[in-house]
Design a protein around this nucleic acid. Structure first.
Lengths: 189, 189
DNA sequence: GTCTATAGTGCGATAGAC
DNA sequence: GTCTATCGCACTATAGAC
């Protein structure tokens, strides 16, 4: 089989969750659209919650793997930030469904805050180090770290949503440059 | 009666929706917690969807009413932005449940994009004028307007969530100032 | 692992008396 | 406007054959 039925279920669930919302999508409809039986779904995922959480973790791991940078070099902090920003933005633009699912999943109650915090640290732990280093070097403004981290995350999600909602602008250099410049101006010393 | 049963239902629904999520909260539990009969709820709100949408519109109207500024004066654009920013932030900090509900409601499918866009324009139409004016006066950076508007909205939601999650910092001048300064640095020329 | 069939539950919404 | 009572449905999850 080209892809396993388990993977087929995950792929289909992603599409349906984004189209209809997580709660409005029944396990029965996922099974049907996946071309598998109802029982098969529950063989692979003990419950609907498990399915949602598996999907979430898969996506976030994939994001972290593709985007993870190699550590901080001493020169040209802005260029390093730009490189990470672009890689992350490219991932979300190439995977709009995944990004939109994550935005929804954040409000899915069984996905505990604890798990979300863990995932966030994997995704943005690099950013924390970059800002701390930049503040030491007086290259980044000296505002409270937790506030800046939240702000970075928020600005990234906003830009990401913007380009997903306006795909025709995603390759427009004016917009791409502007999005990063706005972001960077908020941070720099 | 001090407050109408209709209002009591709205108040109770707000609490339960934020605690448990919109989908996980049954109309029956709202009615019970409100001290009204099941049928009464459906007398005032023809469906659960209507209840959610009414709640959303009520809150947004209240926000717009409380925060709406008086138009743009020619001097001291930054001070005007700060004043609007503070009023808006004060509202969300004073109404954390309302803010948290709105963040969830955005992902509630029956709440159409069309309605959301209309509400957003009522809330942030002022901001559009302020940025356009600021760009003419070379006080605000000349990036694409739609991108800047989304960014402003995003940064505001991020800050608002931050202070709701850290109430002890909401009156801390260092954090309050920093949040606005980060925001403003992203915009200014 | 995959299927069919169905159990069991809780929900949104309605009918009709007061 | 408010209540009680209840209908009908869609859903998650299970049982058991293959």
């Amino acid at each position: 089989m080209a892809v396993s039925k388990k993977q087929k279920i995950l792929d289909t669930a992603l599409v349906l969750f984004v189209e209809q919302g997580i709660h409005s999508t029944s396990t029965a409809s996922i099974a049907k659209a996946s071309g598998v039986a109802n029982g098969t779904l529950f063989h692979h995922f003990p419950s609907k919650e498990d399915l949602v959480i598996s999907l979430y973790q898969n996506l976030k791991q994939d994001f972290a793997r593709q985007v993870a940078p190699q550590g901080i070099a001493s020169e040209d902090l802005k260029q390093q930030a730009k490189s990470a920003w672009d890689k992350a933005l490219d991932w979300t633009i190439a995977n709009p469904l995944r990004q939109q699912f994550c935005l929804q999943a954040v409000h899915y109650q069984p996905l505990t805050c604890q798990l979300q915090a863990k995932v966030l640290e994997e995704e943005f732990g690099y950013l924390r180090k970059l800002i701390e280093y930049g503040q030491q070097q007086k290259l980044i403004a000296n505002y409270p770290l937790d506030l800046m981290l939240d702000n970075c995350h928020g600005q990234f999600l906003t830009s990401s949503s913007f380009f997903i909602n306006h795909p025709e602008l995603a390759e427009n250099p004016e917009y791409r440059e502007a999005a990063f410049e706005i972001f960077w101006r908020a941070l720099k010393a």
